[in-house]
Each structure stands twice: as structure tokens, then as C-alpha cells.
Nucleic acid binder design. Structure first.
Lengths: 145, 145
DNA sequence: CTGCCTGCAAAACTTTTGCAATGCG
DNA sequence: CGCATTGCAAAAGTTTTGCAGGCAG
């Protein structure tokens, strides 16, 4: 999915939910489309203000939530108190290795994991929505120190 | 691991870290040993106060953190704002299916998952500490509604 | 004795909410 | 035009911290 498709997806989602397509919402999506890696709400709010985008904290939280609902971004918690987000379009589903020492977050992809998840859901009559595997440990750099 | 072993583990851990073995810390571990299922810090603090155990909020948070460090309890975040804990001894490692509708949390065990994790860590030169796979979706009961 | 721990309350932080004003549909 | 949305600030909820005793080692 490219950036213009992402915008179309968001607009369709808003309309289907009878929510309004406001400039604030589109501006925030635009900003996320140019981002890379993980970010948190407060952090994102600061960037947004610095860039002169008009959107209050409430709107930022609201919009992030809507983007999660329509699958354009993913929301994680990596053990700290803050929710983290990342772009979920234009790249494959992946999971995270989190270094407990330096906080670095590595990503990995495992097709076998998808199979396991499908199997587990079937066994429990569970309808899959999304998932998150987080492996905590020590990264190779920190092991050498 | 049974309950008396858990206590020994905790005491050894405290001593190895040059931390004190205080009645508050032991009382809190005792209380956790009799618990089942998931709990959060505030919730646990209430129970502790109701039972007449003397321990402040600060001590509860501190002790939960120590118990996580020595592996006697596990800490999770299931998408809400609160950290959840559960006993990690006397039962096998497991992961969670979380119903987005009713909030129910089902547990499952997958030996294949352990293999994948080992493999991924090896590939990235990562030293494994612990992990958490959370699958979000709709449970069978909620699908029937 | 020493200094780690505790209790209490206040502070810090993240996220949500109430209300009046605004503007999308 | 009606009502969802916004901005602002205040509230709510969770976790951390500062400080003055208190007690484990």
C-alpha cells in the first residue's frame, strides 16, 4: 500500500463509520506517512506542533486511535508506561526483539509464527484480529560491553 | 516450583542483590502465592490492605518489580493502561489470547513457538530473557452473540 | 551503628473528558 | 443547520519520588 492508498483507506473508513473527514485528521495521517520507526503519542504531538500543524493533544490521541482501528498503524507497549505506534502499511507484518539494556528494538519476520497463530486460534475457536510477539533480552552490542 | 521454594528463591535473590529481607516483602510474596490468575498493582494493593497486611503503595510497586526481576511473577500489558501481573512459578510458560470484546484472557502453550524464538534470537545474536505473545481477536462466546 | 526500606503524600506522566466554539456534511 | 469534532484545560488513573523516621544486617 502506498501513501495515497493509505489516505483513501482512511477516508473510506471515516465515512463508513459516519465520522467526519477533517483537515486535522488528514494532516496527522500525512505526518505519519513521512515518519519511520516507532513513536509515542506525546512525542508525536511535539513534532506536530513544531511543524505548525494545528491539532490539539485530544485530537492527536483520537486520531491515533482511529488509525489503529482501521489498521493503518499498529500500537504496542514494550514494557514501559507509554504506548508506542508505528506505520503498518507499506511493509510486512513483523515482531520485535527488545533489548533490556539499551532499549533498542529490532524487527523480525517469521512465516512459521503465522502458522502457529492460525493453529492456536482454530483450537480455541478464536477469531484472529492481530497479534504481537515481543522477545526481551540483550542485544549483541550490549553483550560485548 | 512449590511455594516454599518460591520463598527461598526470593530470599536468595534479595541477598545476592544486597537487598533486605523485610517482613513487608515476604508478606506480599505470601499473598501472591495464594493468588490465581492476573492482577494489577492497584487491585493487589487494595486486597493487601483489606487483609490487614502492612505495606504502602510504594512498597507494593517496589516488591512487584523485584519479583519480576527474579522471575517469580510475569508482567504484561494487554492494550489497556494498566500493567498486569501473574504468578510465574508452579506452572508452564504460556501465552495469551485476548478477547477485544469481553476482555477475557485465554492461555495457551506452544512448544513450536519456543523453537521459533530460539531460532530468531540466534539469527540476531540476541540473548533471550523472556517473551510475550499476545493474540487479539474475538473469543468463541462473543462470536455467537 | 549504617544506610536500606517504609509510609505518606505530593509529583510526574500518560491519557481521557467536559464544555463552549467551530465547521463538516 | 445539526451535530460531530476541535481546542483547551482540568480531571483521572497509574506509577514514581522526596523526605523523615524505623529496622535489618
Amino acid at each position: 500500500m502506498d501513501n495515497s492508498t493509505a489516505k483513501e483507506t482512511f477516508i473510506s473508513f471515516l465515512q463508513s463509520q459516519k465520522l467526519r473527514v477533517t483537515p486535522e485528521r488528514l494532516d496527522l495521517l500525512d505526518e505519519i506517512m513521512t515518519s519511520n520507526g516507532h513513536f509515542d503519542a506525546e512525542n508525536f504531538y511535539s513534532v506536530v506542533r513544531e511543524k505548525g500543524i494545528k491539532a490539539s493533544r485530544a485530537t492527536v490521541y483520537n486520531t491515533l486511535d482511529l488509525l489503529v482501528q482501521c489498521g493503518l498503524i499498529s500500537k504496542y507497549r514494550f514494557g514501559d508506561t507509554t504506548s508506542r505506534y508505528e506505520k503498518a502499511f507499506g511493509r510486512p507484518r513483523h515482531d520485535h526483539l527488545i533489548c533490556l539494556n539499551c532499549g533498542e528494538i529490532l524487527e523480525f519476520v517469521s512465516p512459521e509464527l503465522d502458522n502457529i497463530q492460525t493453529k492456536v486460534c482454530k483450537q480455541h475457536g478464536f477469531r484472529f484480529a492481530n497479534s504481537s510477539l515481543q522477545i526481551f533480552g540483550t542485544c549483541s552490542k550490549c553483550q560485548k560491553k
